[in-house]
Write a protein that binds this DNA or RNA. Sequence first.
DNA 1: CTCTAGCGTCTGACATGCCAGCCTTGAAGG
DNA 2: CCTTCAAGGCTGGCATGTCAGACGCTAGAG
Lengths: 222, 222
Amino acid sequence: MGERVNSKADQVYDELKEAILAGALDPGAPIDKIALCERLGVSRFPVSAAVSRLAFESLVVIEPQHGSFVARISGAEVRERMFIRRALECEIAAEAARRLPKDGFLALEENLARGREAVDAGDRPRFYAQDVGFHQVLTTHLGLHRSSEVLDGLRTHLERVRRMLMLPQGRIRETLAEHSEIVAAIKAGDVGRARAAMDRHLAVTAENFESFARERPELISA
Amino acid sequence: MGERVNSKADQVYDELKEAILAGALDPGAPIDKIALCERLGVSRFPVSAAVSRLAFESLVVIEPQHGSFVARISGAEVRERMFIRRALECEIAAEAARRLPKDGFLALEENLARGREAVDAGDRPRFYAQDVGFHQVLTTHLGLHRSSEVLDGLRTHLERVRRMLMLPQGRIRETLAEHSEIVAAIKAGDVGRARAAMDRHLAVTAENFESFARERPELISA
DNA sequence: CTCTAGCGTCTGACATGCCAGCCTTGAAGG
DNA sequence: CCTTCAAGGCTGGCATGTCAGACGCTAGAG
């Protein structure tokens, strides 16, 4: 969204990242740099820089003197990223119960209201945007910028599976209810309850992935 | 340590990173790329790549068309990185209490023994290496590679302040005792106790930083 | 038919040259 | 003496050319 598009390397980076996240490039697919250069009208330099950065994020794998490839999706890694996210977000929820300022609380309620609108309209993409926003409200209003960075990095990877996941329609209503419970706990200043509510919320996400992995095991590598 | 030194960019990267961590380059100091090129006998390409990667890690700040500078140390960021580390390591300790395999447990006891040797010899650098190794044993034997990556990234930044910190001599014995308590809790398979023990251990680290920040506030920026 | 050796091609790594901004500095004008 | 503005010297961003290594295909030998 608010990414810098000043440099050409950034443009290529955004373009490639979106293509990988959206699944336009299959996991394991080779990345043809020169084709990218021609299609985007830039030289190999910004493309190399962009691919290098994506390799740093583990979204692509560079095999020296051989080729660059879209990273495969490993079930173990997905589980571990969820584990990390859970550990961190639970503590963030606890921290919010301790010291979330008023304007942050208002932003949460605003987010819940917008989420309810999306649910009533059955607008899943819009609800998902609100879902992401819900978690970002916490980090932003707590001033936890580095945590936000870490979570964004995790979300980038989890986003790849989420787009395959396509939650059943009913789930978004329950997700909203889980958000409401988290907000209620934060409002009450109940640290333990906030942490537990966030934990349950993310446990459901993890279960969704597991059931998906059982249904479509061919899409998940070791 | 076990870094790839195949490419020249990696060499420059390691060189610069160590210089920043060791404090050879002061926070805020400009990075003279051409001087680096001459000193290391390489062209600007690998240097730019290395600096770019360091900027991605927030160890340097690149101001386009102006210059590259060593990142300053922000107290708020140090606290937040400790917060993240605490959240993650506590859950790792809990996970270890649940399912750490036998060889991991043996590695922990081996680490404790080596740590005790270092303490008895009053060898702080060696004890610190064991300290780092203690936490790595957990992630390695639990197969938590991504968590290890996140923690390494955090440690990289915390390392900058740790080298200034220079723990008082007595503390390393207490640190060892904290490690022992964590191992005992893991051995007992007591999830809550393991998490609490790790939490106390990292709380002490955080307190050390706070007392240092009070003593030498001029070294820590906002 | 199979295995192996050799060559061609594609890839990433690197060197070099050029360009466009910013920051400084010095000179000119008030 | 202070202010202002323009030019030059920095910087990083980008384009292009070259090199070396890895894979794959093919041809030849067994």
